[in-house]
Nucleic acid binder design. Structure first.
Lengths: 185, 185
DNA sequence: GTCTATACAAAGATAGAC
DNA sequence: GTCTATCTTTGTATAGAC
């Protein structure tokens, strides 16, 4: 059953979103998946191996999102799609798993740190690229360059996630809308 | 030695900033302070007790910052002071300890969750109040109400912190400057 | 207040049978 | 691929002496 590995990774991502990589155990995971700890270790001998597999899966998820936006016609549609996706995420009381890993950066293995850096860079490039497209199309207009605006969007988003757990009210929609209005001409 | 408690709390805050509450141990702390684990337990029987004492200290730190800004004359000066303080923080490669606790919200004891919620609200109120002052003084002008702009500032700041560990370059200055320009008339 | 010693549970990991 | 059993290390916590 090659799907077992994917199933384990999927549950791991759920745990990372909820508790972070350092704060869930093979015991938690074994109960969620319905197999023993020993079997988990068979698939992923060390937790670090599992962590790396998760990072790889996150990279693939990012590529899928990119393919979806590639299918859209305008930069405006692309940006709207990404924002709606982000808002949905938070509304499900979920958290971007990369956000958890970024917060735990100092306690994850070095091999995972490298992947987290790579994923963070990709995220920024992805948004910056769409912003550049919007400028080229003449539909976006904002202060600063695409990369700094991409950082603005992503930092606000990640920060909203942190607050969404402790503060009532729809922070993410509010914040992203404020940014959206700054970008669209 | 009543200072011992404060010393322990101070080291704990350092560990929380670096690794988070869940990811440092009484062993780590005992080595940093230079006393045994047993002595730590004498001062703070359970880690939850220590966590609550830390939250209380963070609240006091917040009140001290408020007193400092109260001594300044204009809202503009107050905002600039807070922004510079935040930028310094990140430049020292440090992280807002509340940010760590917010990220770990799902794994900290319930008693600490309450404190984290309270601290988060206070932070927002503090910024929102200064923004309101600036409007009243006629020196600030921005879209939306003071609370939503305060959220914008804080979410960007917390998000910048997450990225600052994984991305090279001065994100925080860039992002906060972009916001500052939006606020100052 | 501080220590040594110790208890207890949880987490990560391995051996070996089926 | 999955299990039971076991091991090791670490983390939290307590007892009791000084």
């Amino acid at each position: 059953m090659e799907n077992r590995k994917e199933q384990i990774i999927s549950f791991s991502i759920d745990f990372i979103k909820k508790y972070g990589f350092d704060s869930f155990s093979y015991k938690d995971l074994s109960e969620a998946v319905g197999i023993t700890k020993a079997t988990l270790h068979h698939h992923f001998p060390k937790k670090e191996d599992l962590g790396l597999a998760v990072c790889k899966a996150l990279k693939e998820n990012g590529q899928k999102l990119r393919m979806k936006t590639d299918g859209l016609n305008t930069a405006k549609e692309k940006l709207r799609y990404i924002f709606d996706d982000a808002i949905d995420y938070v509304k499900r009381m979920e958290i971007c798993p990369l956000c958890s890993l970024q917060a735990e950066y100092n306690v994850i293995p070095d091999s995972m740190k490298k992947m987290v850096i790579d994923l963070s860079e990709r995220e920024i490039d992805f948004i910056a690229q769409i912003l550049q497209e919007g400028i080229d199309e003449g539909s976006f207009e904002f202060k600063g360059n695409p990369r700094s605006m991409a950082l603005m969007i992503l930092t606000s988003y990640k920060g909203s996630i942190l607050y969404s757990r402790t503060i009532n009210g729809d922070i993410i929609t509010l914040v992203l809308q404020q940014i959206y209005d700054q970008i669209i001409k």
